[in-house]
């Protein structure tokens, strides 16, 4: 029917074909890996502001004092470090404080948004399915605020003393300036809060910096626990 060559077998395909699926699998893996990496990098950039008209929980998770008070005097007697606590005010009213959760003899204090003062007997009741229940909502240690266009939150820091607490510093943060998550503020030479670490006053005394955590209060309990802890 055809030419002379018709009785000869055509050449076998290149062994390269055996490797095609492996190349495709590796290519998909590489694309997936790169996509995941890019996605993670995107997550790092916090750009969202809080939404006006929404409720949030706020608390200070970290606060640092300078080694001396404003004016250079030492905090407590001798070389003792101060006993830190803070107070949050909104609309001129104190809405949250940690006077009952003072962090003693430190220059850097940390607070958590969740906690409970549960006695061993209470804990036994919780664990043994009888009596009281432990609800994560009851454990939230943060102030609740409603974001308004011109609203502001006032933070005041103190050194707890037996006779009279020392005021270490304070500032007002416009609510619209906040971002969900951790907001780091540094106190500059004029005593004003700034997000620019380079502008932080080196030896002003008193309050040095703090981190304000903002959490959307409309989240499910599980996510609230995750965000506040």
């Amino acid at each position: 029917m055809t030419e002379n060559g018709s009785t000869e077998s055509p050449p076998a395909p290149s062994p390269f074909y055996y490797g095609v699926p492996l190349l495709i699998v590796l290519a998909v893996g590489a694309v997936f890996f790169l996509g995941e990496k890019t996605g993670n990098e995107d997550k790092v950039v916090p750009s969202r502001k809080v939404v006006v008209g929404k409720d949030y929980y706020v608390l200070v998770t970290l606060m640092e004092f300078h080694p001396a008070k404003r004016g250079g005097a030492s905090w407590d007697g001798g070389s003792s470090a101060p006993d830190l606590y803070y107070q949050l005010s909104w609309h001129g009213k104190t809405i949250y404080h940690t006077k009952n959760d003072v962090v003693k003899n430190v220059l850097i204090a940390k607070w958590f948004g969740l906690g409970a003062n549960v006695s061993v007997m209470d804990l036994r009741k919780v664990l043994s399915n009888e009596g009281q229940r432990l609800s994560p909502r009851n454990l939230i240690k943060a102030a609740s605020i409603f974001v308004e266009p011109n609203g502001e939150l006032v933070i005041r820091a103190y050194d707890d003393d037996p006779l009279r607490d020392d005021f270490a510093g304070g500032c007002a943060i416009p609510l619209a300036d906040l971002e969900p998550g951790d907001n780091a503020y540094f106190i500059d030479a004029e005593g004003k809060p700034t997000r620019d670490r380079d502008r932080m006053a080196a030896d002003r005394g008193g309050l040095k910096r703090f981190v304000l955590r903002v959490v959307d209060s409309a989240q499910p309990v599980e996510k609230l626990v995750e965000a506040l802890r």
């Binding site: 076998a12 395909p13 490797g19």
Partner: peptide, 15 residues
């Protein structure tokens, strides 16, 4: 899948 790829290539050449 590698074997099937090769088989498909062979079929394409009439083998």
């Amino acid at each position: 899948l590698g074997v099937y790829f090769m088989a498909a290539a062979r079929r394409a050449r009439g083998l």
